[in-house]
């Protein structure tokens, strides 16, 4: 329905409305309402204050929260907050 299941290495997803209500969920994030609340807390924390330097005129579009073996990607699309949990496989650095 949302096409969110086609993301490579995705293990779970959560879609929230602008007020934090769960619209859809799946995988490891199925019914993860508590996590939705934490993510809303992170977003309100960021939007309250300007993180970027005032002259840059930039704003964040995507947030990644990376742990050692998985990561969460948060972005806003179509007035909904999309959260995707992905497996994170770090690549060995290229030796030159």
């Amino acid at each position: 329905m949302h096409g969110i299941g086609r993301i490579p290495d995705e293990v779970g997803h959560l879609i929230l409305s602008e007020d934090g209500a769960v619209i859809a969920s799946g995988g490891e994030l199925e019914n993860a309402e508590q996590m939705g609340g934490t993510v809303m807390g992170i977003l309100t924390c960021i939007t309250k204050a300007q993180l970027w330097p005032a002259d840059s005129g930039d704003a964040f579009k995507k947030i990644s929260i990376t742990y050692s073996d998985h990561s969460y990607v948060i972005c806003l699309s179509n007035k909904n907050i999309h959260i995707v949990k992905r497996k994170f496989i770090p690549h060995e650095p290229v030796k030159v």
């Binding site: 960021i46 993180l51 970027w52 840059s56 930039d58 704003a59 964040f60 579009k61 995507k62 947030i63 990644s64 929260i65 990376t66 742990y67």
Partner: peptide, 11 residues
């Protein structure tokens, strides 16, 4: 503790 990355268009 995780690493947090905020991405904008240019920064």
């Amino acid at each position: 503790d995780p690493l947090i990355l905020l991405e904008g268009d240019n920064s």
